[in-house]
Design a binder for these strands. Structure first.
Lengths: 231, 231
DNA sequence: CGAATCATTGATGAAAATCAACCCCGGTGG
DNA sequence: CCACCGGGGTTGATTTTCATCAATGATTCG
């Protein structure tokens, strides 16, 4: 870890995995429990770096609580966020020796982490584990392929519509979405500026497609309209 | 295969793989030979579809000769090309039951193909094979991550500079690059229009960074300048 | 309460898309 | 052999979208 300033890690052997939510997360739980792998929990503060682009990839992570952004930078600071990782999501699984993106906590975030070395060892003896690792990487690839289409060919409004539907699907509770990230993060994810994000959201609000409780608390009123927009 | 109008397939058992060029290709050769897997060759004509988005993924392919584009479409026809596949490259390896992009031959193209089912079977018994499949998918993911940065955050000129360096690396022979794809394909790969591609290339030509033999035959004169541009 | 951060909104500008014309070159057929 | 045809490529004029610059408003948090 890079800055131990936040919270003391608590090491535990996983035996009764707390199943969070989605299917890709369960794969990780299966791997972790099946193999008697040692998992550790750790908490990062808001905006704290979890790992940097190019660093040796020593651990694989699962978000327990909070949210993480992974991104690349150009030399002048322009940033492209490749993905947001929410509760249950696995990240940092870069086959190869080093991380290809930087990971940062968006808000205070607790992760479970396992040594990549032990995962690879498990994969060497257990075909199920190997297959799950492959499947998880393939899931990341699918997302990246969809996101290339968005970045390269969708308009600003279509990008925002797609984003809202994605977040609605992934983190809506009781019809309400509590976005963990700021407008700049959203813009850097969608390849537009924060002002353009704000204008698109305001316009959707004016049209009655969504309602704000606060800037980051959103209720979708017309998912079909959004789906139509997203082309 | 979808249209058999072109060339009769020739089925052969692979024993002495003709090692084409790069490392990712060799992994495929290793898999194919290691496992006594049956490979078939097939040739597609220019612009012929190899498989369509959403179709069941029955085969995995390796380009023997020619070039392939894989892409996604929006409902109104806007297209995002995710990758170009050149001699030696493997494509169509989508874990899951269906292809997530459409694949088309850019020029007359010969591919080697193996049944995905037999690959998966081999992966189930041979850890090396399983690891190679994972590594190949991870290679696609790395490319997609780099390309998201390009699509979301680079300027038109930076995109073209990056493209030229990529193609130079992948297909230059004797300092000369023979591009198999048209300006529209390049634009749809970079998320810009064919006119913008043309203007950027003309400007680079004016600056002496490159020289055209013909529209698709390019010699790079100053790779450092290009690398600087690509930020 | 006040400072800082985040978000919204408006005015202006710049990059790239679009629309349009023309050119170049290879292939075909008179 | 050469004219013509058509697709691909280039270049120019104009429009559009989104970025940038700037000011103000809302929340959160010491």
């Amino acid at each position: 870890m890079h800055t131990q300033t936040i919270t003391a890690p608590a090491t535990t052997v996983l035996n009764a995995p707390r199943a969070p939510v989605p299917s890709s997360a369960d794969q990780f739980s299966i791997i972790a429990s099946c193999s008697g792998i040692i998992a550790t929990e750790f908490t990062y503060g808001k905006d704290e770096e979890i790992y940097g682009e190019g660093e040796p990839s020593e651990y694989v992570y699962q978000v327990i609580q909070g949210a993480v952004r992974t991104y690349k930078l150009l030399s002048d600071g322009r940033r492209q966020i490749g993905a947001f990782h929410l509760a249950g999501d696995v990240f940092g699984l870069d086959p190869g020796t080093s991380h290809r993106l930087t990971a940062e906590a968006i808000s205070d975030t607790t992760v479970r982490l396992v040594k990549r070395r032990s995962l690879e060892a498990a994969a060497g003896s257990n075909v199920r584990v190997a297959h799950n690792l492959w499947t998880m990487t393939a899931g990341d690839l699918r997302h990246a392929e969809d996101h290339m289409l968005l970045l390269g060919r969708k308009t600003a409004m279509e990008k925002v519509a797609t984003f809202l539907l994605e977040m609605d699907r992934r983190l809506a509770k009781a019809g309400m979405m509590a976005l963990p990230m700021c407008r700049r993060d959203i813009g850097d994810y969608l390849g537009i500026t924060l002002e353009t994000v704000s204008r698109a959201l305001s316009q959707l609000n004016d049209q009655g497609v969504l309602v704000f409780s606060s800037a980051r608390q959103i209720v979708l009123r017309n998912r079909q309209r959004l789906a139509d927009m997203d082309a």
